[in-house]
């Protein structure tokens, strides 16, 4: 039950993008089309889940026993960067269609702060292994949800008559603000 709460808390109530401002760069950059936004969301969820597992293992099995907690950031970011590289090569070998769908988005994920943020939150909140995995999947689902909704709105926005000064980033941010307001409706639903 607690695991399900963590999942929904990360996905909806404390959405990574709209409540913690993590992963804003792809959220603004790759939200032009629903299809590419959804692929980006899937790729991110995939990497997030693996990151949650691997960084938890590294932190609790290597850094803590050897009292190397100060290497947390260096080791996490290196792990994430090599993980993304590895996932890219793996997908390329195993499934060509999936690679074509996710391919260009994978390198971008390394610098997505949502991934490092996830690893840091898992350490900060002292989640257990299983909780960490659910948190990772939930955060990924929340990211996918937010970026897909955003892309849907922006596709409609193409047809709207936006004032010249607001075109591009400003109107995207304002839409994101309204979306964040809408997601505030969920606040207080779960307190985890």
């Amino acid at each position: 039950m607690e695991l399900i709460l963590i999942f929904f808390s990360a996905a909806i109530v404390n959405n990574f993008v709209l409540a913690y401002f993590l992963g804003i760069c792809p959220f603004i950059g790759v939200s032009n089309k629903i299809t590419s936004a959804f692929s980006m969301g899937l790729a991110t969820t995939f990497v997030m889940t693996i990151t949650a597992i691997v960084t938890w293992l590294i932190y609790h099995l290597i850094l803590v026993p050897f009292h190397l907690e100060f290497l947390e950031y260096v080791s996490f970011i290196l792990v994430i960067a090599s993980l993304v590289q590895f996932v890219e090569m793996f997908i390329k070998k195993v499934s060509q269609p999936l690679y074509r769908a996710l391919g260009i988005f994978l390198p971008l994920i390394t610098t997505n702060c949502a991934i490092l943020g996830l690893a840091l939150f898992i350490v900060l909140r002292e989640y257990t292994f299983l909780q960490g995995i659910f948190f990772g999947v939930g955060a990924g689902a929340g990211f996918t949800l937010a970026i897909t909704i955003m892309a849907g709105i922006r596709e409609e926005l193409d047809l709207a008559d936006v004032p010249k000064a607001f075109q591009g980033a400003p109107i995207t941010l304002i839409v994101a603000g309204i979306l964040a307001l809408a997601f505030m409706g969920f606040s207080g639903l779960i307190s985890v």
Partner: peptide, 10 residues
């Protein structure tokens, strides 16, 4: 709140 950040920056 988060929404205010997006709106102000926009």
């Amino acid at each position: 709140l988060p929404a205010g950040a997006f709106l102000t920056l926009g």
